[in-house]
Simulated scan of single mutants.
Amino acid sequence: MADVLAAHRAFYDAIETGDVDLMSSLWVDDIATTCVHPGAPPLKGTGPILRSWTVLMAGVGYIQFFLTDLEVTLLPAQDPTTAVIVCTENILSDAGSVESFSGGRAVATSILVRDAGRWRFWARHASPLIDPEGDT
């Protein structure tokens, strides 16, 4: 389980540090991989997925993820080859200036598979969590 969680955390480390090489190493290289960014249509294939992360990371000055409600399911239970991870992303990012930060939350589901002896992302879907009280 520790190696699954390490691969999952490395994904967020890549985003926080803008490390395109690390992000590339974390995805299975296949045309069937899938990524859904909040509010966007699904991306298919590792090339388009990595391009999207490169553009996203280039446009963010500061971002930090605090993960909560982390649930991991390993399949099959004996000698797992697939991991399903669901968590809440509590996100802190700059809002265009050093003095201004904004926050948000999303729920993310990630599917990792064993690939060449390592855990790598096969699919990811993130969706924003809306505060029912509203931010007024």
Rank of each mutant, 00 (worst) to 15 (best):
F11I: 08
M23A: 01
L67C: 11
V86S: 05
L70S: 11
P41V: 14
D115L: 01
L67I: 10
A95R: 11
P38R: 07
D131F: 06
S93Y: 01
F11S: 02
V28Q: 00
H37T: 15
T136P: 06
A106N: 08
D29I: 01
L112V: 02
I63L: 11
R118T: 01
T33W: 01
A126G: 14
I111P: 03
L50P: 03
V55H: 15
D135A: 14
K44A: 06
D69A: 09
Y12F: 09
A14R: 01
W122T: 07
V28S: 00
A10N: 10
G96P: 09
L56S: 04
I31H: 10
E89K: 09
V36M: 08
L43F: 04
Q78K: 11
T46F: 03
S97A: 07
L112D: 00
A106W: 06
A7Q: 02
G104E: 07
V36L: 14
T54F: 11
S93K: 05
A2S: 12
I130E: 07
P48R: 02
H125T: 13
N90G: 13
L92H: 14
P48A: 03
G61E: 11
I85A: 04
L67K: 00
V4P: 00
T33V: 09
V86F: 09
A32E: 08
L22F: 07
F121L: 13
K44G: 06
L112W: 00
D69N: 15
D21Q: 14
T73V: 15
V20N: 05
W119P: 00
L67M: 10
V72N: 04
L5P: 02
